[in-house]
Design a protein around this nucleic acid. Structure first.
Lengths: 391, 391
DNA sequence: TCACGTTTGTTAGTAGACCTTCCTTACAAA
DNA sequence: TTTGTAAGGAAGGTCTACTAACAAACGTGA
């Protein structure tokens, strides 16, 4: 195996678990937290002087110098020479995150037909891609397939790899155990642990709707209170509340695709049967295939009206959620020709008309910015967050 | 002023802000966090030996002994003699939180006519109550009124007071600034800061629906993923997701009372005008006055049917929220004769029929356990959480 | 031109917090 | 009486971040 351990590979960051959960805090955890603060500043603000970082984090220059020295030793940051601008005082030495010199391996299992993977920089730029047909592969074979894709990507880069991030449909717990992913035939599969063992690298696994939300938040400029609706074969949602992912009691948060939106009382619509065994689910009208069927053969005007009627149904389902959570944004991810027009506009009008002004007026309902790579970018964020503490 | 500083009054706990926000972590913050761990264990598990605490928190016995010694010095805990049970080894010395020897002053402003206040123990037991008519009192006078009630309660106890917790309707930010409370005529009033200055004690202020949620969580055994619907003059909701309060983008989370639930497409109902200027809001059918009007003069059978029809409307509004957040529980707080019967049952049936089984089957929809004191208990939790780190 | 203030980054010393290791005390069971 | 187990404390070591002081390097203004 060519990719056991690599120089610069960082150890798991104890701060992430230690500081938010109800667990003890040791000096080393505090250190890791402050280290993450430095990395986070460099990630979001770009190259800065040690003094800049000290002002931003509240730590002293001495402590920042110490932390930066450690990061220089790890190779995660580099000195970039003195700042050009002429100000009074000693010129600042700029320090920058070596984003392009460290890679993250990401895999997206959203597509049933193909496993998509990539080598990415810490900035979320794709360096190399991999595609592997996977139709019909299930159970342990599907795990092996994911492992193969990871290995191929690891072999494709000479840079240190910080970790592996995997974005998968299904119900997945905090530890990266896939509790239930019917498409792959996975039930209680400890995917993260298994791949960590096999690859010798930290592996993080999360639900694809959630990773998309993370990706839009970190790389797409989404608000900390955002819901991202992904429209593909089905309809899923990732939910970010006050900057944190919502997991919910059975780790099944975001399963909004099977909320009833069409029923007897809704005039002019027939409740269609859904794959879940019930009828009138949001998915029966909003999934990409359903939308395509709905507009097939219609002239543009009728097509717009048909999309708007779906938008109104979506709006009726969104209104209570937007109200209860006081969301700032709802993002639509999926075919723009279907979503980013009359459907979106009708949904927004409906939400506004069904919520009080303070809730609906400031709401933004827009297309997602990252498109098909959002899940990969979000998988990278899993690694950035888990290994480096960058959010 | 008789209540400047009292022995045993604890300083603000830096761990609460320092460890969750994106701020530096100093050794003293780690210490405060671990101290909270000890207090939290004693609060939830009752009297324990130092060794028990060490096992539960993961800290060493040495460290726990040190922390307990500090807490003994502060008077927050006391040694309760040796454990009775005969086990091998040296008998354990039990240490317990002195819940009854420390008080919390709480105020609930939910009721427009009367300010309700209480002196409570750390266990949430009410020691003394205070009631002050407040109809028509607004603006600065209303602030003075709250201050007076606090002073009276502080004078009524000889025990050290850990802090003051206030539960108020309106939009309130993390710092205890009342951004908007029309009933009291408060706009951008820094209530917490003002009372902290006036009383010389730490004061915490939060929205009443949110404090109710906290109260039900800490003292009522509610699940960490719970929504509590309060039905009174209006309809409000507090939302707890994964154990944390949801505040939302304008701190207006939980404003579910003005979601449209009755509209042209809903058969057999007329959309009533709402105080918010729109029609068909949840509040127009679910508020206590609306429910009373609805059942007035009906025989029991018709009354049940009328309540069930409101339950169905509630269920339609809840279904998307429950789905999106994968909530474990929805609690109803308000007149049980109206809520805890056909209304609740119909709402649950409706939510279940409109969500996928994995979401709806495990959902509990039940009456809140704390009733009228929930807001006071929640205000106490604000203090416990803010000053002692107990959640 | 040159002293002065400003800003950066480093060195040295200090205080806090937790750990490991070892010890004493106290009890139950053989 | 002996042995094993558990609780609690004392001593010493390590880690972390802070304060204080200082050197280097650069504008600024007399």
């Amino acid at each position: 195996m060519t990719t056991t351990t690599r120089p610069g590979t960082t150890a798991p960051n104890p701060a992430r678990r230690g500081l938010r959960a109800t667990a003890k805090v040791l000096p080393e955890h505090a250190r890791a937290h402050n280290r993450s603060l430095v990395l986070g500043h460099l990630f979001h603000e770009g190259p800065s002087s040690r003094a800049d970082i000290a002002r931003s984090t509240g730590l002293t220059r001495v402590t920042v110098s110490d932390l930066v020295a450690a990061l220089l030793g790890e190779g995660l940051v580099a000195e970039l020479g003195v700042r050009a601008e002429g100000r009074v005082g000693k010129p600042a030495t700029l320090v920058g995150l070596r984003s392009a010199d460290h890679h993250v391996v990401t895999v997206d299992l959203t597509d049933d037909e193909t496993v998509h993977g990539a080598v990415m920089t810490l900035d979320g730029e794709v360096v190399t891609r991999a595609h592997e047909p996977s139709a019909g592969t299930t159970g342990p074979e599907a795990v092996d397939l994911v492992e193969d894709v990871c290995r191929r990507l690891l072999d494709a880069t000479q840079q240190p790899v910080v970790g592996v991030g995997i974005s998968s449909p299904g119900v997945i717990d905090d530890a990266g155990v896939v509790l239930e992913a019917p498409n792959r035939g996975w039930f209680d599969v400890p995917l993260a642990a298994r791949l960590t063992d096999a690859l010798g690298l930290p592996v993080h696994v999360a639900n694809d709707a959630n990773t998309r939300a993370l990706g839009e938040y970190t790389f797409g400029g989404a608000d900390p209170s955002t819901m991202i609706l992904t429209v593909g074969q089905g309809v899923g949602a990732g939910l970010l509340v006050d900057g944190a992912l919502v997991r919910g009691r059975g780790h099944a948060a975001g399963e909004i695709g099977h909320v009833t939106v069409v029923d007897d009382q809704t005039a002019g619509e027939d409740a269609l049967p859904c794959a879940c065994g019930r009828t009138g689910c949001l998915e029966t009208v909003l999934s990409a295939p359903a939308l395509r069927r709905r507009v097939a053969g219609l002239d543009p005007q009728d097509s717009d009206a048909a999309l708007a009627s779906v938008g109104r149904m979506l709006g009726r389902a969104l209104a209570p959620v937007v109200s209860a959570l006081n969301l700032a944004e709802v993002l639509l991810s999926g075919p723009p020709e279907l979503l980013d027009g009359p459907l979106r506009e009708a949904a927004l009008v409906t939400v506004r008309s069904r919520t009080m002004p303070v809730i609906g007026q400031d709401l933004r309902l827009r297309a997602a910015t990252l498109d098909e790579d959002a899940a990969l970018a979000g998988a990278a964020v899993l690694v950035l967050s888990g290994q480096l503490g960058i959010t």
